[in-house]
Design a protein around this nucleic acid. Structure first.
Length: 289
DNA sequence: TCTCAGGGGCGAT
DNA sequence: ATCGCCCCTGAG
C-alpha cells in the first residue's frame, strides 16, 4: 500500500464520528464505498507507529489505483491541525475534548453523496443509517472486488433517479423515500454542475440553495456545508448539539436553530465545525458510559 | 413484546 | 414560529 506521513490523524475516531456512513472496518483495514470507488486505509496503532519511526496512513484506491489526489482531498490531509487547535482550545470544554479525541478530523465528501446520505439520516440512529446506505448501494451502486471481497460503491444520483418506489422502499429509508427520489432527480438533471454552481457561493447563499432540495432542512443543509463544502464555521446542530449547548454552556434547549447557530458561530474563532465535532464526540460518548 | 429515541423535515396552523 | 406526524430500526 501507499503511505502518507501525517501527525495527529486518528482514522478510527474520524471514520466513526457520525459524519460519514460508508466505512467498514475489516480486520485492521478500513474500506470506504464512496461514489468515487473504494478507498482502503490502514493505520498502525500508536505504539507500533512510534517504534516504526513515523506516524501516517497507508492507502490504496479502486478501481483507479494510486489516486493520491482523491485520498488527500477526502481526508483533508492538507489541513493545518495545529492552527485549528489553537483557534478553538481557548474554550474549556473543547479543550477537554481535544485532549480526549486527539486526531479527530473532518472529511470532505462528495457533494451528491453527502446530500443523499444526510437526507436518509433524518430521525435515524447511526447503525440504521449505515444499513440503509448499504442496501441502497447494493441496489444502485456498482460492484467492486477488493481483496476478494465484494463492495458496492455509493450510487450515482442518476441511478437513484431511475429507481422505482417499491425498490427504494426495500432499503428501509421509510418516509424519506420520496425525498431521496425527488432530490436525486434534481441533482441528476444538474449533471455535476450542482456543486460547481454552489461551491463559490457564500455560506448563507449556499445554504439557501440546499434548502430548496426536498428532504433538506436546516440541519441537513449544515451537514452538507461542513462535510462536503468545507465551511469550517458551521456546525450541524442535531439533538446532540442542542444537548451539549445546554449541558456545557447553559443555553436554553428551546432556542431556535438559527439562534443556536449564531451562538456557535460567534464562539470558536471561525472554526465552529471543528469545535462542534469535538463536542459532539464528547457528549455522545459520555452518554454511552 | 414493549417502549423509546434516533445526527429531522414537512405541512398545517 | 410552533407542532404533530411521518417509516423504520437499534437498543434496552
Amino acid at each position: 500500500m501507499n503511505f502518507i506521513e501525517i501527525e495527529n490523524y486518528d482514522l478510527d475516531l474520524t471514520l466513526n464520528s457520525g459524519q460519514v456512513f460508508v466505512w467498514k472496518k475489516i480486520g485492521d483495514f478500513w474500506y470506504g464505498s464512496t461514489v468515487n470507488g473504494v478507498i482502503k486505509l490502514h493505520q498502525l496503532p500508536r505504539q507500533s507507529a512510534v517504534q516504526d519511526g513515523k506516524r501516517g496512513i497507508y492507502w490504496q484506491t479502486y478501481p483507479e489505483k494510486d489516486n493520491e489526489k482523491l485520498v488527500r482531498q477526502y481526508l483533508r490531509l492538507d489541513d493545518d491541525y495545529d492552527q485549528i487547535v489553537k483557534a478553538i482550545q481557548h474554550d474549556k470544554h473543547v479543550n477537554l475534548a481535544l485532549g480526549k479525541y486527539q486526531g479527530l478530523r473532518l472529511l470532505k465528501q462528495d457533494f451528491n453523496e453527502t446530500i443523499i446520505s444526510f437526507i436518509i439520516s433524518a430521525n435515524k440512529n447511526v447503525p440504521a443509517i449505515k444499513s440503509s446506505i448499504d442496501k441502497l448501494s447494493r441496489l444502485y451502486g456498482s460492484m467492486l472486488k477488493v481483496d476478494g471481497l465484494d463492495f458496492y460503491t455509493f450510487p450515482l444520483v442518476e441511478k437513484i433517479a431511475e429507481a422505482d418506489l417499491s425498490d427504494l422502499k426495500s432499503t428501509s429509508i421509510g418516509y424519506r423515500v420520496p425525498y431521496v427520489l425527488d432530490t436525486a432527480k434534481v441533482l441528476a438533471l444538474k449533471d455535476r454542475n450542482a456543486e460547481n454552481s454552489i461551491v463559490n457561493l457564500s455560506e448563507s447563499e449556499a445554504r439557501e440553495e440546499l434548502l430548496e432540495l426536498m428532504g433538506v432542512g436546516p440541519k441537513v443543509a449544515d451537514c452538507v456545508l461542513v462535510y462536503s463544502l468545507g465551511f469550517d464555521n458551521v456546525t450541524p446542530l442535531d439533538r446532540w448539539g442542542q444537548r451539549f449547548l445546554a449541558q456545557y454552556y447553559g443555553l436554553d434547549p428551546k432556542l431556535s436553530y438559527k439562534e443556536m447557530r449564531n451562538w456557535v458561530q460567534k464562539n470558536f474563532n471561525g472554526f465552529a465545525a471543528w469545535a462542534g465535532q469535538y463536542l459532539f464526540e464528547m457528549i455522545r460518548n459520555s452518554e454511552k458510559a
